[in-house]
């Protein structure tokens, strides 16, 4: 398997000399092509900071992140946007759809930013929407459709450009349990059938149980690492709960 992402001893500090907060304190791991990795941890464990650093929205204090041998931490400021739009796909907790655009236009937006020829945009948008079962609502506005449909639209937007890695930040956070389950099945499908590489941050064990591998963070460090292997999802879920109990995280984080 090809290594897509290589995180090497990254650190992220906040604050000044007298009062340093280590949001990330020396994390290293690899992501291989076609992997579905979950990152779990309590609030303040550094999982969102980690995701932000990988997604180039935030910068690291030290260490390196390589995407297919290119060092992301060395990319110049003016090239970052280009790098991001060509290599990364984003799924956010609150969908981040523009309510002035229709569902179709929200998906097409990323393609226009990437300067895809106008004729192809329509084709690609329709194709991806059909795959995710939202072609019926393409002409509606975000506030006219359900949360699950919105998130599916967001996923379309994340993958329509064929990014090298998809970064998802609490993708089920704003959905009810039924919609969340549907969404996770879609993501699992994407991973299995389309061989999409996904990195998902969540604190919900059920969501995490859809991933193939989970990293647990605590106080900015990797606390534990488990793999699904050939296990049933239910067993994997229980295993996650065990680790969480061990993690001693806030009871609120364990559903």
């Amino acid at each position: 398997m090809k290594k897509i992402l290589k995180v090497e001893q990254i650190q992220k500090y906040y604050g000044n000399k007298d009062n340093i907060t280590k949001a990330i304190d020396g994390i290293s791991f690899d992501v291989e092509e076609g992997e579905f990795i979950g990152i779990m941890g309590a609030s303040g464990s550094g999982k969102t900071t980690l995701l932000n650093c990988i997604s180039t929205i935030d910068t690291v204090s030290s260490g390196h992140i390589y995407l297919e041998n290119q060092d992301m931490t060395e990319i110049k400021e003016e090239n970052i946007a280009k790098f991001r739009r060509e290599n990364l796909g984003f799924i956010f907790q609150d969908f981040n759809l523009l309510d002035t655009l229709t569902i179709e236009e929200n998906i097409a937006l990323i393609l226009t930013i990437n300067k895809v020829p106008e004729k192809e945009i329509d084709k690609k948008t329709l194709e991806i929407a059909r795959k995710l079962g939202i072609e019926e609502i393409l002409n509606k506005y975000p506030y006219q459709v359900s949360g699950g449909q919105k998130q599916r639209c967001a996923i379309c937007r994340a993958i329509v450009n064929n990014p090298k890695i998809i970064l998802a930040d609490e993708p089920t956070g704003s959905l009810d349990s039924k919609a969340a389950r549907q969404l996770l099945e879609i993501m699992e499908d994407m991973n299995n059938k389309m061989k999409a590489t996904i990195l998902m941050v969540t604190h919900d064990p059920l969501s995490a149980s859809y991933a193939k591998k989970i990293l647990f963070l605590k106080d900015g460090k990797i606390f534990n690492k488990i793999e699904k292997g050939e296990k049933q999802r239910k067993d994997f879920y229980n295993e996650i709960l065990d680790v969480l109990a061990l993690l001693g995280g806030d009871a609120r984080d364990v559903r």
């Binding site: 655009l101 236009e105 097409a108 226009t112 895809v116 106008e118 945009i121």
Partner: peptide, 15 residues
């Protein structure tokens, strides 16, 4: 569609 997807037209006009 071809006019819409040109540059930032879509974002701009919708706003």
């Amino acid at each position: 569609k071809s006019r819409k997807y040109k540059k930032d037209n879509m974002f701009l006009y919708r706003n």
